[in-house]
Amino acid sequence: MDSVLRFQARIGHRALLLTTAALPLTGWTVHAITLHRRLAAAKKDPLTGLLRRDAYTARARQVLRRHGDDTAVVLVDQDHFKDVNDTMSHAAGDVVLMATAARLTAWAGPRAAVSRLGGDEFAIVLEMPAARREVRLAQLVQMLRVPVTLDDGQVVDVAASVGAAACDIVGTRDLSVLQRAADAALYEGKHSGRAHLATAAYATLPSVNGRRAGRPGTSLWGRVA
């Protein structure tokens, strides 16, 4: 009987040691998970869930390295967005931005870099071979013209201007140069109802922080994402 009791005591002591050791490990695990979630959240825009500027830049450069000349940079600017905020409320504007973000994510696919640069402006870097480029951009413009239904049932007519710069056309894989060219193309075709594709000349236009000189919001480029 004594031997049985001593064996049970040893088992109980070991179990206590294991439990005691597991407690701090569990605490660190919870802390690590919480920290990871906070870091992941810091990389994303809180409204749309799209990548913020730094995370977008890192992902975009990965896409450029992976796909080379088949890569394109696409910039999107919501048309008449101020009118939505002014006449329907900022809450309605938020719904429109979230809808646009969801559409861009669905269109670009999981391997693309999709970002909200700030306000109603977005950027995508993705694989887009020349043979599919025209069709893909036309699909994007069509998606962005689908009306958005608000929580109260109201329907908002929406549209967006789209500018794109492809590595094989512009002649570079430099992200900043491609963004500059795409931005110039976007404003060249503003409110045209179709995507505007940059030529190599667009990359040489004067710019401020990577955006066409004189266009609205140039001072904000890179500050908010």
Rank of each mutant, 00 (worst) to 15 (best):
K82N: 11
D83A: 15
V84A: 07
N85L: 02
N85M: 02
D86Q: 01
T87Y: 05
T87D: 13
M88S: 09
M88V: 13
H90M: 04
H90E: 06
A91V: 13
A91I: 12
G93D: 10
D94W: 09
D94S: 11
L97M: 10
M98N: 11
A99M: 04
A99R: 10
A101G: 13
A101Q: 07
A101L: 06
R103I: 07
L104H: 08
L104S: 06
L104N: 05
T105P: 06
A106N: 10
A108H: 00
G109N: 04
G109P: 06
G109S: 02
G109R: 01
P110K: 00
P110N: 04
R111K: 06
A112F: 00
A113P: 03
L117S: 14
G119H: 07
D120G: 15
D120E: 15
E121H: 02
E121M: 01
A123W: 07
A123T: 13
V125Y: 01
L126Q: 14
L126W: 01
P129V: 02
P129S: 08
P129A: 11
P129N: 08
A130L: 15
A131R: 14
A131T: 12
R132F: 04
R132E: 15
R133D: 03
E134Q: 12
R136C: 12
L137T: 06
L137M: 03
L137I: 01
Q139L: 06
Q139R: 10
L140V: 04
L140W: 02
V141P: 08
V141R: 12
L144A: 12
V146W: 00
V148H: 04
L150K: 11
D151C: 10
Q154L: 08
V155S: 15
V155N: 12
D157W: 05
D157R: 13
V158Y: 04
A160D: 07
S161N: 09
S161V: 08
V162L: 07
V162A: 06
G163S: 11
A164T: 11
A166R: 12
C167I: 01
C167S: 15
D168R: 14
D168E: 14
I169G: 00
I169C: 03
V170S: 04
V170T: 02
G171L: 09
G171V: 03
G171S: 06
T172Y: 03
R173A: 07
R173C: 09
L175I: 08
V177F: 05
L178P: 04
L178H: 03
Q179E: 14
R180C: 14
R180W: 00
A181L: 09
A182M: 04
A182C: 06
A182F: 01
D183K: 06
D183F: 02
A184S: 14
A184C: 13
